[in-house]
Write a protein that binds this DNA or RNA. Structure first.
Lengths: 226, 226
DNA sequence: CAATTTAATATTGTATACAAAACTATAATA
DNA sequence: TATTATAGTTTTGTATACAATATTAAATTG
């Protein structure tokens, strides 16, 4: 449970391809229902079909693409409703994680604090605002630490799958530092409540996520084509 | 939302390999922490590395295997606790689906009844008890129909991912027809409550799943090596 | 002209080849 | 001896080749 599952860690090409396709699909660059042809995409991106296949499989896992029963891959459009449902799912999973954390006898909270302080430190460097990509990674890391604390492997697996899409959305919406300032203050309150094993942490979490979701979805809708 | 996502539908080899590895890992044939070598497995199963890589990726998606950061694939043991957590997750997701179904104005319940009647019909053929593999597919299909009714794509994606492991467990535990008789009676009660949009359907669902989980886990533990 | 069959094309699934990276074991050095 | 270098091996990631299946277009038939 300590090692981190990082698909494509060594597969730089597939990683890059996946990221690009994921973002494009979320933004609506591909029409819903249109078909993704391995060789076409391979030519466009200037590589062979091998890493493309890998990327397609991951996209399918994330629900952005559909594996047709006769072979082939079809784009599933990403709508505003889906974003909403995704965020609701995130809340459901994280709340479950937190409930289990509170119910467990002992737990390790170091990773939670480390990830929190990493974000705080990064934000506190004067005159050097972090990029949206940077902060999204750190923000996600905090929440991943929380889910990992639950020591519930299936829950973590489910969370990780949707987290990829979630992180892409965070990057797209290009959060500014002031917004993140809000977020990390909420992270601190939450982390403090968690180590106290205070049941109020649940409502703090619900508050935090609901608030974040509202801001993010509003920004996302402006960027989406459809 | 109408098309069904079936990875490996055309890829028979990879499908077979995945199924076999999945079952073996659940049963504890591979030691937790041991490394899966593509070429080794390919030689054992008498095929090339291509379908093996595909299968490994799917296993990773299901949380049975870990992608090491320097490349390579490590087996994550499947413990009794994980089974318990998995089943709890299943309940969480299906309950969420049902809540959304009840909240929605209109919904299509044909697939739910069709899958239910398929199971009933199959069980009612005298002197021809269905195999565990057969019934597990039909049972899973009923629950998938339920989740699909929620028209919540991210929720369905998450459910599908864990359903693969769940179905494998159903097959392993080799349910007998009498047990299934119980299950499908519960299915019918549940389906009836759902079309009435009766909130009691939620407790019926909780009951059904909790009951099934208890039976299944007990049987599973007898089959697991660890 | 509509429907069906047949041929041509496109696309995927698997096998193989090769290069880059990671791991292992041996040798060298302090 | 313990530690670092180094050579050798293993293993993966990507590219390419080929065969089987799907899709599309054309031809045929009623």
């Amino acid at each position: 449970m300590n090692k981190i599952d990082d698909p494509l860690a060594r597969s730089l090409q597939a990683k890059e391809i996946l990221k690009r396709l994921r973002t494009d699909i979320i933004l609506g660059e591909y029409k819903s229902g249109s078909r993704l042809i391995e060789s076409k995409v391979a030519d466009q991106l200037g590589c062979s079909r091998a890493p493309i296949r890998t990327a397609f499989q991951l996209l399918s896992q994330e629900g952005l693409v559909l594996n047709l029963s006769n072979g082939g891959t079809e784009v599933i459009g990403f709508t505003s409703k889906q974003a909403h449902d995704l965020f609701e799912l995130r809340l459901l999973l994280e709340q479950k994680a937190l409930e289990q954390i509170l119910a467990n006898r002992s737990f390790h909270f170091r990773p939670l604090f480390e990830s929190m302080e990493q974000l705080e430190q990064r934000l506190s460097i004067p005159g050097n605002a972090p990029s949206s990509a940077e902060t999204s990674v750190l923000d996600i890391q905090f929440h991943r630490s929380l889910v990992m604390m639950s020591e519930n492997s299936p829950l973590l697996v489910a969370w990780n799958t949707m987290a990829n899409v979630f992180q892409a959305i965070l990057e797209i919406t290009n959060m500014t530092s002031p917004t993140y300032q809000q977020f990390y203050e909420s992270h601190r309150r939450l982390a403090d409540l968690v180590i106290q094993r205070n049941p109020d942490s649940i409502s703090e979490l619900r508050h935090h996520i609901a608030n974040a979701n509202e801001i993010i979805i509003a920004r996302l809708e402006k960027n989406m084509k459809t």
